[in-house]
């Protein structure tokens, strides 16, 4: 375990007058699962967007494997080995599951326009590359039980399955750090249970470090090594799941203050 695998230092971003993320710092150990929790609008997804390069933070540093990646373009971040999923699924809807996952392999595709368009010959370099990619993708399809959706258009798949396809696409990038934005949202309890196992598998067997945003506390407790709670863009507690869950600040953020409830009644 090396502690400088991934760290965020004093990250801040403002939209108009709103401090969406305000001096957030945390460190993630390699091969661990780190969760961020907090009420809606607390700034969790904004942190993800800063990490994956969709937003440029106003200040603060993001360090990945000893290298600063703050403010890099999204495609550069992807090439460094950081993949993510979105809260409201972002898939290529008019492509099949297979094609979506193959696109996850984009940064690993080496063949140029010419050889890529003309691999008529078996055993050519482009053909061999294609086979390697397909094998990888098949492995992911097996892992996530997506066989039945393999050749279907993603746009027609049920919500829970779409979430898995997105997870699969992120895995296809062979990330070292995987950002999951509310992976269990919209899933029923059975799907959620499967998801818990898969995320654990991804961490343990594939050796991927996972940064998770999740509302389901059961899931967070079951799989997280450490948890960070934030509210109004500010960190309000960090530690192992049980600690954070019982932290008075965190309870207050989720349930509101007693005084304010009294005041209403």
């Amino acid at each position: 375990m090396d502690s400088d695998f991934f760290s965020v230092d004093n990250l801040a971003i403002t939209f108009g007058g709103l401090r969406a993320v305000d001096r957030v710092s945390f460190t993630i150990n390699r091969r661990s699962i780190f969760s961020i929790i907090g009420p809606n609008g607390a700034g969790k997804t904004t942190i993800f967007n800063c990490i994956s390069g969709l937003y440029k933070p106003d200040s603060g540093k993001i360090i990945f494997k000893g290298e600063e990646i703050t403010g890099l373009k999204p495609h550069r971040i992807a090439m460094k080995g950081i993949a993510r999923t979105f809260q409201n699924i972002e898939l290529f809807l008019r492509m099949t599951t297979m094609e979506n996952l193959m696109l996850g392999r984009h940064i690993h595709t080496k063949t140029g326009v010419w050889s890529g368009s003309t691999f008529f010959r078996r055993g050519s370099k482009a053909a061999r590359e294609e086979i390697t990619h397909r094998e990888q993708v098949e492995r992911i399809i097996d892992l996530l039980d997506l066989q039945s959706a393999r050749d279907q258009f993603v746009g027609g798949l049920p919500y829970g399955t779409q979430k898995l396809v997105e997870l699969g696409r992120a895995l296809a990038l062979e990330p070292e750090l995987l950002l999951l934005d509310e992976p269990s949202a919209g899933m029923n309890s059975e799907e959620r249970q499967d998801l818990t196992f898969w995320v654990k598998d991804i961490q343990e067997e594939l050796g991927v470090t996972i940064l998770l945003i999740e509302h389901n506390m059961q899931l967070v407790r079951d799989i997280s090594d450490r948890v960070l709670a934030i509210n109004f863009g500010r960190p309000i507690g960090e530690g192992i799941p049980e600690e954070v869950q019982n932290d008075p600040e965190v309870l207050k953020a989720y349930l509101g203050e007693e005084e304010s409830i009294d005041a209403v009644s």
């Binding site: 390069g53 993949a83 979105f86 290529f92 094609e99 696109l103 890529g116 990038l173």
Partner: peptide, 26 residues
């Protein structure tokens, strides 16, 4: 249908944000 750039074009058209975070320079 087959080239990397061609497929990246298709992806960009269907979902530019997803294309970007998958390493495509949209």
């Amino acid at each position: 249908k087959y080239s990397k750039v061609g497929i990246a074009m298709k992806a960009t058209q269907q979902n530019a944000m997803a294309a970007r975070i998958n390493g495509i320079r949209t």
